[in-house]
């Protein structure tokens, strides 16, 4: 699935200082019934965001107009649990292009990279600084520089580098995905398969 190329992102951010946010919270199972990939953003964090009667929960951060932007800043172990890629789709569809946390669950990280949502892992100390800055000033901006692999808190110019493989960085900055790569090496795969025991 084609996605927007990612190079430099400068944006305010939405803070969610909760740990262990699992993919069942990001998108509850009952919204996984679609056979297409659109519209998941409406149900992003559904049960935290809305009351059962559909009215917005005032104290939930996505319903707080003070916060906005394409970056979600979340507590450690973000995206644990179910492998549903719908979680990454929902975040992307809602408008997020980057999630910052001090720790990500594996499958979520893979899924995100595959659809053009950048997971940026920072130190717990830096994560705290970002939360503090957003609390002090909800309009604080972050700058994600993918080619340089840095995340900068613009108010203080504090910066930290983050990891991503050369391969994935190349994909994200060009809007390519793994399927493009695999299609290009089909002959190798076929000869490998011919020798496989199963």
């Amino acid at each position: 699935m084609a996605y927007d190329k990612f190079t430099l992102l400068r944006s305010s951010a939405v803070p969610m200082p909760i740990e262990n946010v699992d993919t069942d919270q990001i998108i509850p199972a009952r919204f996984l019934k679609a056979t297409e990939r659109t519209g998941f953003g409406d149900n992003l964090f559904r049960d935290w965001r809305y009351n059962t009667d559909g009215s917005p929960k005032k104290d939930f951060v996505l319903n707080n107009p003070i916060y906005s932007g394409n970056i979600l800043v979340a507590g450690r172990n973000f995206g644990s649990g179910s492998s549903r890629e719908h979680a990454a789709w929902a975040l992307y569809d809602y408008g997020f292009r980057c999630v910052v946390s001090s720790f990500f669950a594996d499958i979520f990280k893979n899924n995100s990279l595959n659809i053009g949502l950048l997971p940026v892992q920072v130190s717990p100390v830096f994560l705290d600084k970002i939360f503090t800055a957003l609390e002090a000033n909800p309009h604080s901006e972050l700058e994600v520089n993918l080619p340089e692999q840095t995340l900068t808190l613009l108010a203080t110019r504090e910066s930290e580098s983050f990891e991503i493989t050369t391969y994935k960085k190349h994909n994200m900055t060009h809007g390519y995905d793994d399927i493009d790569y695999l299609q290009a090496m089909k002959a190798d795969i076929q000869s490998f398969a011919a020798k496989s025991m199963y």
Binding site: M1, S83, D106, N110, N114, I179, L182, Q183, I189
Partner: peptide
């Protein structure tokens, strides 16, 4: 192990996925 839908598409079309060895 579990995979996401993009990876399901990879396996269907190429019988492979891209994985870093854990």
């Amino acid at each position: 192990f579990g995979i996401g839908t993009s990876e399901v598409e990879m396996v269907l079309s190429s019988q492979c996925i891209m994985q870093q060895k854990p």
